[in-house]
Each structure stands twice: as C-alpha cells, then as structure tokens.
C-alpha cells in the first residue's frame, strides 16, 4: 500500500534552535495515525510543515508516492491536505454552510449559489453520518463544542481531501462529545482518507488509531501499529524516548 504521506529525514530549525531532527513519518489511506509526544516535542511544528505553513530545511516529502514541496497552506490544500486546527477557525456569526464554504464559495453569476452549497454541505454531513436536516443554516455560535468540531472536520473533507490532520480535536470537549468526535475520526479513515490525529489522551489514541508515532525532543522515537504496543510503552516513549527494544538509542 502506498502511503498518502511519506516524510523522510525531515529537519527544521528556527534560528539556532533545531526543532525537528531527521524525522520520518508515514500516513496510510484508511488508517488513523496518532501523533503523540510531550509538549515541545515538535508535534505542532511537524504538522505545520505538512500543512505548508513552514518550509522544510531538509528532507523528502512524498505525497501519494510523488515528491512534492508545499510552501504555503494553499499548496497543501491543492494537494488534498486539510488541517483542522485546535482553535477550530470557524466564524461564529456565519452559519454552518457559510463556514464550510468560506473562501471557496459557489457562485452563479455574481450571486452566491446558496442552494447548491446547502445541498453539498448536507451531503457531506450525511456521508459522515451526521444528520443536520433543518439546521445547516444555524449560526455556528449556537452550536455545542462537539458540533463545532464536527463542522470543522466536515469542512476539511468537503474538498476531496486525501489527508486530514486533526490537532487535538477532543481537547476541550466533554465525555459524550469526545466520543462523538472520535467516532467521526474513525469514519473518516473508514472512507479511505489518511487521518493524522494529534492527542495527549492515551485512551483516545488507543480507541481510534491504527498506528502510533511518538515524537521525543524533536526525534521520531517510534512509529508502530497500535495493536503491537501497550499503553505503558507509549507513555515511556513519550516521556523517555525509549521503551524496551523500541525507541531511540541511548
């Protein structure tokens, strides 16, 4: 199986501080890859490199097996990479449809084509088994945290994306809403997308991921199948970079 995303030997420095050292990272279609690591391990920097926000210093970037080099968020979007940021980036005063199409509105002549946009938004939401009939015209301000996260994720898959990166999607949610968002994350992968999930919560990681990639101080400690690793081993990889035979050499 060709990975959707294949990063090899990524280096990234900000001034004299090297944040990423020789990082390899792979994401396969139809799988959820959890990206874990302590604060400051380089998760966000890696995601920003994937999303074209930062340019790489060194390393190879393969997308669907083709070498590419996204240098702006637009480049990344054009490839089919969508990033759902932690702070959601929704406009509360606009409704669900308007948020999903923001910046890429459908028009007919000079005028917005509301009907087509609403149809497409409803279709995407129902494809994700989120039923919103009669409510896609509600302002986002009226939605709960879980519903907002759902809208943000649905927006990411509206554009024929191949890779969706979710930055701590359940960080601010309650138990039931977290469950709901994790189910949605799982469904994205089941539809054949490559999903990268950043999370601090080991329960969430084990609940939905197929692979786990652990960063430790800017180095990739290990990337293994979730079924081949235990809870304790992941925690050790995060905190010490090593666990038994896994991880970085001393």
């Amino acid at each position: 199986m060709t990975p959707v995303l294949d990063l090899r030997g990524i280096d990234k420095s900000f001034g004299s501080v090297q944040v990423l050292h020789d990082v390899d990272f792979v994401a396969y279609p139809g799988e959820v890859t959890a990206l874990v690591g302590d604060n400051g391990a380089g998760k966000t920097t890696l995601v920003k490199c994937i999303g074209g926000v930062h340019d790489l210093d060194r390393g190879e970037f393969y997308f669907d097996g083709v070498p590419v080099r996204p240098r702006s968020p637009r480049d990344a979007n054009a490839l089919g990479i969508e990033i759902v940021h932690q702070d959601l980036a929704l406009c509360e005063n606009l409704d669900i449809v308007e948020n999903m199409f923001l910046g890429r509105e459908r028009t007919r002549g000079l005028s917005l084509d509301y009907s087509t946009m609403e149809e497409e938004a409803t279709r995407v939401l129902s494809n994700l088994s989120v039923r919103t009939i009669g409510s896609v015209r509600r302002p986002v301000a009226a939605l709960s945290g879980g519903q907002r996260q759902t809208v943000a994720i649905a927006r990411a898959v509206l554009w024929d994306s191949r890779l969706v990166v979710l930055d701590e999607p359940a960080a601010a949610l309650g138990v039931a809403q977290t469950q709901q968002v994790l189910e949605l994350v799982r469904r994205l992968a089941d539809k054949g997308l490559a999903v990268v999930l950043i999370s601090h919560n080991m329960n969430d990681v084990f609940a939905v991921s197929d692979r786990i990639a652990a960063l430790y101080l800017g180095r990739m400690a290990a990337q293994v199948r979730t079924s081949d690793i235990t809870h304790r081993e992941v925690v050790e990889l995060i905190t010490a970079g090593r666990s038994g035979k896994l991880g970085l050499r001393a």
Partner: peptide
Amino acid sequence: QGAMKSGPVRMADADFAADR
C-alpha cells in the same frame, strides 16, 4: 477500547437530530 472502531454510530446522530 478498540472494540469501538467497528461499533455502531449513535451519538453524533442524536446530537444533531435534536436540532431538527
């Protein structure tokens, strides 16, 4: 926990269905 991966989907529906 892995059992959820193939489990049925309930809550996402219910949350939005209430808006109808």
